[in-house]
């Protein structure tokens, strides 16, 4: 055992340099050259200021915007420095209370939508930073968004379809709508005159 100590110590050092410094260094260098935008967080800038990331959800509460899913990240949700799910189990009273409140709010904000709610819109995501909602969850909110912007539901619907991504390679994952990108497009196409 004693004879093995020195090689053990040296091997940890050698592998540390190889896999802990060289490897991440090379990946960082290549990623910064080849995929600079993605490697730095797919940030969106407006007027020189960062307003968020294309692939990180952020909260929306105003009626003229599509709203994302409930979030358990940080104390107010959508804290991108403290990702987290709710970790409520299926028989958790807290889960039912929170979902009840979300359902009530959704019903109040979107009174014209009567059918059952899609499964994603009143439940918290795993990361708390889900950038997407399902197309059905966008449909729930279209009437409200259209009214708030003084346009027809059909106009909002058409824009939403343009921002709906299908399954990857046609079968992987789920169809989805990126909330931030859709809302930015709404502001561009149907600005609200204040």
């Amino acid at each position: 055992m004693i004879k093995q100590l020195l090689p053990g110590f040296r091997m940890v050092l050698v592998l540390t340099v190889l896999t802990g410094l060289l490897y991440p260094g090379v990946v960082t260098g290549l990623a910064q050259i080849l995929f600079k935008h993605q490697a730095n967080g797919s940030l969106i800038t407006r007027n020189g200021k960062v307003i968020g990331s294309e692939i990180i959800g952020q909260n929306f509460t105003k009626p003229e915007y599509f709203h994302p899913r409930p979030s358990a990240a940080g104390s107010d949700g959508y804290d991108a420095s403290a990702s987290s799910g709710s970790n409520f189990g299926p028989t958790s009273q807290k889960l039912i209370d929170r979902t009840k409140a979300s359902v009530a709010q959704l019903r109040a904000e979107n009174p014209s939508f009567k059918p059952e709610l899609p499964s994603d819109i009143a439940t918290a995501s795993a990361s708390g930073l889900d950038p997407h909602i399902s197309p059905a969850s966008a449909a729930v909110q279209m009437e409200r968004v259209a009214q708030a912007r003084g346009v027809t539901r059909e106009q909002v619907s058409r824009l939403t379809r343009r921002f709906t991504e299908g399954r990857d390679l046609g079968f992987l994952g789920e169809p989805r709508v990126n909330v931030l990108r859709l809302n930015l497009a709404l502001d561009e196409r149907f600005p609200i005159s204040r």
Binding site: S86, S119, T123, S137
Partner: peptide, 11 residues
């Protein structure tokens, strides 16, 4: 247009 099922804690 939506995944159904138990979406709590899923993306």
């Amino acid at each position: 247009s939506q995944p159904g099922g138990n979406m709590e804690g899923k993306e």
